[in-house]
Amino acid sequence: MSEPFFELKGSLFPLSVIRSHDLSVAGLRTSLQQKLAQAPGFFHQAAMVIQLTPEHQAVDFIALKQLFEQLKLVLVGVTGADTEQKQQAQQAGLAVLRLGQDSKAVATEPVKNSAEVPTELVPMHTKVVEQNIRSGQQIYAKGADLIVRGAVGAGAEVIADGNIHIYGSLRGKAIAGASGDTSKRIFCHNLQAELVSIAGHYWLSDSLQGDFWNKAACIRMQDDSIAISELY
């Protein structure tokens, strides 16, 4: 008989930290609901930490915990707490966490936005289409990358706010960075497009003829102009 397995190890986990000058239940509810509405499902049962500053007076941690539960979030702890806040948080059954040094500097700064979830850490969603996109069909990946496991036919349109990946031939139109992000790209395994566009800049089929026509290609913005390179 082997011993029952038991191990205690320190690990790092990504946690979303909420910074807000208004930690009242009503105020936080509004801010959080707005955030959740932008990406429904993304924060489902996500572990969250509240950033405290000395300005926060008499925070009702128990009520906050219930609010998070209602919103299908898990409030696991607080950070940046002073002695009094620490005690209150612990009474409410929350962990008191210490931030790394970088964050400490940020924590003392006055915070303007009401509820700031670190959006830069949130990856874009991805829309995957498992078939050929036929002539006349239009696919829009709103706020997301688009992956097509097939060809995009002549007269078909694929549009994404993020990047576009096409694992077949691109014969129709592809529009990446549709909401204006010039860092987005288009990747395809065979370039025969009618039009490619990134953040409003576009090239028609005529401009695409040349070295990369009929080949696997990557299309991106470079110095305010569209540039094509080999995919591999």
Partner: peptide, 13 residues
């Protein structure tokens, strides 16, 4: 060929 492609899209939707 293009019109057939269009019809194939209709068939699948």
């Amino acid at each position: 060929v293009r019109d057939s492609d269009r019809i194939l899209g209709m068939l699948s939707s």
